[in-house]
Nucleic acid binder design. Structure first.
Lengths: 133, 133
DNA sequence: GTGTCTGCAAACCATTTGCATCGGT
DNA sequence: ACCGATGCAAATGGTTTGCAGACAC
């Protein structure tokens, strides 16, 4: 049997959470790292990765595990959808009401045990639409 | 002004397309590479990546650019949804009718120019549900 | 013949990990 | 004091790229 390890509220963990929740954007781990270094110059990138992982596993934040090469993080753990710019990879929230019922539809059509779903819209952000071709 | 380069139907490109369309699964580039080497022992991983990229850009196949560390490819370029196992990353098609109308909803709620969307269900595949914990 | 494509190997880059030390509880 | 967390640096692993020769058109 396994008791999950107790989470300690270290200074790093607290500040990572604080700074992420302050943002409306959906930063990558590296973007978080640069923001955090302003307050904690000695924080390491490894610590940022480890904490974003742990915090998202405990459901306190959300790992946006959709398209793009870098994962992004969201201080809002509620189910909601995102738009991503296919050019610059900017990710915004989009106020389309999430369809919980679609998970029941899915359960009828697969042998998998469905846990959750996410939807990502793809498009061009205003900036990239301007700076066009 | 730019003329896009003419696509040449090389032996490698043809066979990559052939083998991918044969499959019902959604292989990673590396899985494709191993399959292809049975027919073309000298094909390189770089060629596989380059062709899967080019073919998906021309809309002949689909790059499944959702969660997970490795990208996957789908010989079926039509819009359809997928389920992914959170444990083993197996990806199956799921027969939930795609909701085209949701893109219009999205257009009303964002400044982005919406091009497309995708939805991924997450869950446990039958194998991983058995072999539990 | 021209310009794209290939195989190969090295480069890249996001993320993970080993380890000695630090610090929360 | 115990054991999880940190900083640092090295390792990993998927993907991309530079280049010289090969091949489709």
């Amino acid at each position: 049997m396994h008791t999950p390890p107790t989470l300690r509220m270290t200074k790093q963990r607290r500040i990572i959470l604080e700074e992420l929740c302050k943002l409306k954007s959906h930063p990558t781990a590296d973007e978080m790292y640069h923001i955090l270094r302003k307050r904690m110059p000695r924080i390491s990138l490894g610590t940022v990765y480890r904490n974003l992982e742990v915090l998202s596993e405990s459901g306190i934040i959300q790992k946006i595990d959709v398209g793009g090469t870098q994962k992004r993080f969201d201080g809002n753990a509620e189910l909601h959808y995102h738009v991503r710019c296919v050019k610059c990879n900017r990710v915004d929230d989009i106020d389309v009401p999430p369809d919980r019922a679609i998970e029941d539809q899915a359960r009828k059509r697969t042998e998998f045990t469905i846990l959750r779903h996410h939807t990502e819209f793809l498009g061009l952000c205003p900036n990239c639409r301007e700076a066009d071709h």
